[in-house]
């Protein structure tokens, strides 16, 4: 069920666009901000609110990298694996994440703390390798800095 707050935020978004459908991605982001992912029920409710079919809204939801249609952990690690980060050693960072967390791309730790996903270029190639955890960007990753970051992210 969408909370009243979520419903209000979605309705606010509709004001910014000439059609309701244009606000659908923003609406999905609002759902996700509160619930961390978008469930089937949420798709149906947002679709009703916006006047789209649930199937069409789902096709939009699944198109975008940052709309999660499956539950994710408390923190989502987005590791850049594009060319510059690859040249600068993102595979080593991935191996270390797999080793420390026991999960690989698309998986969530048993304690629900982290989900690990690959991500296209984060636009910080001069400070590669890079990753984002939730909304925080981490640059110039090394084995040492990665361990520190993980430790600090409860």
């Amino acid at each position: 069920m969408l909370s009243d707050k979520q419903r209000r935020e979605v309705l606010d978004e509709l004001e910014h666009y000439p059609t309701k459908q244009a606000a659908c991605i923003e609406a999905l982001k609002i759902v996700q901000k509160h619930d961390r992912w978008v469930s089937d029920e949420a798709i149906q409710e947002v679709a009703d609110l916006i006047g789209m079919s649930a199937a069409e809204l789902d096709s939009v939801a699944t198109f975008f990298n940052l709309i999660f249609r499956r539950p994710v952990g408390r923190h989502v690690i987005l590791l850049c694996d594009s060319a510059s980060c690859w040249l600068m050693g993102c595979n080593k960072i991935r191996a270390q994440l797999v080793d420390r967390l026991g999960i690989d791309y698309g998986q969530t730790t048993d304690d629900n703390r982290f989900t690990l996903l690959p991500m296209a270029c984060l636009g910080t190639c001069d400070r590669a390798p890079a990753m984002m955890i939730d909304e925080q960007l981490h640059q110039d990753l090394t084995a040492e800095s990665l361990d520190k970051i993980l430790k600090a992210t409860e």
Partner: peptide
């Protein structure tokens, strides 16, 4: 002027894909 913060996909950088994304469609 408004800001539309995307939900991430390379295709959104393509001119007409971007317009579809802005309209709330697949890009």
């Amino acid at each position: 002027l408004n800001i539309h913060s995307s939900a991430g996909r390379y295709m959104c950088g393509e001119e007409t894909g971007l317009l579809n994304a802005l309209e709330g469609r697949r890009a």
